[in-house]
Write a protein that binds this DNA or RNA. Structure first.
Length: 600
RNA sequence: CGGGGCGUGGCGCAGCUUGGUAGCGCGGGUGCUUUGGGAGCACUAGGUCGCAGGUUCGAAUCCUGUCGCCCCGACCA
């Protein structure tokens, strides 16, 4: 490709002010993407080459474990999503699915994911266990109506994703294939030159049993991951389970009521009464809203030095009730409290808050669903709200084990916690960018969509399913987050838009010009991804651009052309080789091979 | 949706407090000089100051509304 005639670069001198994190700034500054609307980007030619390289790596690896590529529609009829009972949850209220009506008034959604479509199609073509297992995948634009798109391609409303769906005759076969995909994923990310961690994850709205996320570790990441140094454990903070630190037990002589005027937070109560947060039980109230329109008030208790994990809480409540849970939110709004609750001593609530606090006139469930975290239930003596404004009290031998209280894990694990009682290893925390996610869905979708096959005994059974995602555009940006310096991007060679860029420093010099053409043609003939910066610009400009766009190798053609000598420079570590032009190709091939092997 | 900030040429910004008819740097074009680290000089094109109302003799500037964008939070395969 020649910059002047077929590959305009579109780099910017200044960093656009809209970008906050480095990878987003570089994508814009180096001319890879242009913003069209909030969370909607155009991928410029140079970006498309990166996307295609990543896609090729993915395809290669998935094909090798027997997956088959296809392409599914992006416009999905609402009926299909109503069958899986996801239409309401994905469109109404907090819905993330763009949806629209055609001229007949028929409803459609723009697909954020394809379980429904693939399941209905697969069930039409799969009839017998003899056809199993099968795995179909596609690489395609997905849509999500993000409330707040941010960080460029990291959280955008339109993005390219590889999504795959597998079908199996048994739970066991699914589990085996899931492992296989996990291995393929490790290979894919390695081949992309990325450092990733596989972590246990929450399976979220998509549902299903087991789920694993692949994270690129980077400070700009939006997820927190907890792991042990030895690698024995790694999980998303949403999912992580740990042993809380030991509490400071209350002294024996403390008992009865504590007057705590205006002390509504744990911090204030501790400061004014010389207490430790682990001696207090914090009570937080939530409202759970269900698809069936029913609303259930939740009383969640946890030790004062710990935090409630709302994902765990959500999953727990979702399991507890029949109807689909839409969301849970903290009850904070004064109007809502006044309308539904009676004399709520906000800031002074205890675990024994009376059901009488819920007004008869309220549309809510009339009893509190009481959930106590293990960290709280194990305290035999503790301080909590007195259910009376300006008072806390000491609870002694309070029995959470009675039938009114559910003792569960609703706690955020945190760094410093231990994993096992007999193991001293502590959890560490890092930020991560989720670039892949694999799930064992089980039979959730095949049941809803009636996707069956005949087993060996001729019996109709529901298909077992897995689903597997990789954020293609997210990989591109995450890679920049991991591979850049003060000059710009340093692509891993495997996903770089070009392997090498040729920079003639002075094209007016006929010797340089001829040598440039000769080298360029030679590289093209040898099927090397080469970009020729044939702009009639000063050398400095071309050097800066080459560094900014991050091509791993540069060939500088300059003064020594007369001696048929050129320079080969490695972008990442700035090693330079002065070399005769007839040995250049060979040298480049050996150097680039080293780089390919090092990264993968 | 709550809090904060910003919309002025392709990009980065000044001007707004105190109204007087738009400016700087970079980028673009042309010419000459220069040519291994974002060149110099000269000339030049390009903006209904997000949009709509209002106040005023006069609005980028003041007022009202509205749209868009960014950041924090809530939210999130």
């Amino acid at each position: 490709m020649r910059v002047t005639t077929s590959f305009p670069l579109g780099t910017l001198r200044d960093t656009p002010s809209e970008a906050e994190i480095i990878s987003h700034q570089l994508l814009l500054k180096a001319g890879y993407i242009r913003r069209v609307s909030s969370g909607v980007y155009a991928y410029m030619p140079i970006m498309l080459r990166v996307i295609e390289k990543i896609s090729a790596i993915i395809e290669n690896e998935l094909n090798s474990i027997g997956c088959t590529k296809l392409l599914l529609p992006q416009l999905h009829p609402a009926d299909l999503w109503k069958k899986s009972e996801r239409w309401e949850g994905y469109t109404a209220g907090e819905g993330i699915m763009f949806n629209l009506k055609d001229r007949q008034g028929k409803e459609f959604g723009l697909a954020p994911t394809h379980e429904e479509v693939i399941t209905s199609i697969a069930s039409e073509i799969i009839n017998s266990y003899k056809q199993l297992p099968q795995c179909f995948y596609q690489i395609q634009t997905k849509f999500r109506d993000e409330i707040r798109p941010r960080f460029g391609l990291m959280r955008s409303r339109e993005f390219i994703m590889k999504d795959g769906y597998s079908f199996h005759s048994s739970r066991n076969d699914l589990a085996l294939f899931y492992e296989k995909v996990g291995n393929a994923y490790e290979n894919i990310f390695k081949s992309c030159g990325l450092q990733t961690v596989g972590v246990e994850a929450d399976s979220g709205a998509i549902g299903g049993a087991s789920s694993k996320e692949y994270m690129v570790t980077a400070d700009a990441g939006e997820d927190s991951i907890l792991f042990t140094e030895s690698g024995s454990y790694a999980a998303n903070i949403e999912k992580a389970v740990s042993i809380p630190s030991q509490p400071n037990l209350l002294k024996d002589h403390i008992s009865g009521w504590l007057e705590t005027p205006q002390q509504k937070t744990i911090f204030e109560v501790c400061k004014n009464n010389n207490l430790d947060p682990s001696q207090i039980i914090k009570v937080v109230i939530f409202l759970a809203k269900f698809e069936s329109k029913s609303e259930v008030p939740i009383l969640a208790c946890i030790r004062g030095d710990q935090h409630i994990n709302e994902v765990k809480l959500f999953n727990l409540i979702n399991k507890l009730y029949r109807s689909n849970l839409l969301n849970i939110e903290k009850i904070e709004d004064k109007n809502i409290i006044e309308k539904n609750l009676f004399n709520l001593p906000l800031g002074f609530i205890g675990p024994d808050l009376d059901n009488e606090t819920i007004k008869e006139s309220s549309s809510w469930d009339k009893t509190w669903t009481r959930i106590i975290d293990h960290s709280a239930s194990s305290l035999s003596k503790f301080i909590s709200g007195g259910n009376k404004v300006n008072f806390h009290k000491v609870f002694q031998d309070f029995s959470f084990a009675s039938k009114d209280y559910l003792i569960e894990d609703i706690r955020n694990a945190k760094k410093g916690d231990k994993i096992k009682i007999d193991d001293n290893e502590e959890l560490k925390e890092k930020k991560g960018i989720e670039i892949g996610h694999i799930f064992q869905l089980g039979q959730k979708y095949s049941e809803k969509l009636n996707a069956k096959f005949s087993d060996k005994d001729g019996q109709l059974k529901n298909l077992w399913m897995g689903c597997y995602g990789i954020g293609v555009t997210r990989i591109a940006q995450a890679s920049i987050e991991q591979n850049h310096d003060e000059k710009g991007i340093c692509w891993p060679i495997q996903i770089s838009p070009f392997e090498v860029i040729i920079i003639p420093t002075n094209l007016k010099d006929p010797i340089q010009r001829d040598l440039t053409e000769q080298i360029y043609n030679n590289f093209i003939t040898n099927k090397i991804d080469v970009l020729l910066d044939d702009r009639d610009d000063r050398a400095g400009v071309k050097f800066k651009d080459a560094e900014l766009i991050g091509i791993p190798f540069q060939i500088i053609i300059g003064r020594d052309s007369i001696k048929k000598e050129v320079e080969l420079i490695c972008r990442a570590n700035n090693t330079k080789f002065k070399i005769s032009s007839d040995k250049l190709l060979k040298k480049f091939i050996s150097e680039s091979e080293i780089m390919y092997n090092k990264n993968s």
